[in-house]
């Protein structure tokens, strides 16, 4: 669907019509998880599900699990480390990738 956003359907498509259009979509520059040099790891025992990391995450790659703790979407997480720094319980650890 979003792939076709640049091509808008016309009532009378008599000419080639291309406009500079997009729609919000995941991965507008690809899988940004590959940018990571450091990886945030949630220490589940310490996580209270307070959502502070969720609130601050610049990338929207932290989600709530069914058990109320957080999980990280590593496909897109850029590894900035904001979550580890704001966590009041030191429940997120930054570990080197690779």
């Amino acid at each position: 669907m979003e792939e076709r956003a640049t091509k808008v359907l016309l009532e009378e498509p008599q000419t080639l019509f291309l406009a500079p259009l997009s729609r919000p979509a995941l991965g507008s520059v690809g899988k940004t998880g590959t940018w990571r040099t450091m990886r945030p790891v949630v220490i589940l025992d310490k996580c209270t599900g307070c959502k502070i990391c969720w609130l601050y995450c610049p990338e929207n790659t932290i989600f709530m699990r069914d058990d109320g703790k957080v999980r990280i979407d590593y496909e897109y997480c850029k590894g900035c480390g904001v979550c580890a720094n704001v966590c009041p319980f030191d429940a997120i650890e930054m570990v080197p990738e690779g």
Binding site: P24, A25, L26, G27, S28, V29, G30, K31, T32, W35, K51, W54, L55, Y56, C57, P58, E59, N60, T61, F63, M64, D73, E75, Y76, C77, K78, G79, C80, G81, V82
Partner: peptide, 28 residues
Amino acid sequence: NIRKLPDRYYIMPGNAACPGCPETMGLR
């Protein structure tokens, strides 16, 4: 109450912001 805010894409992951970008935080 941030606990009541639903899990959803407030910004789309995989965007071109630098790691730790304050702008994507603000946009969320």
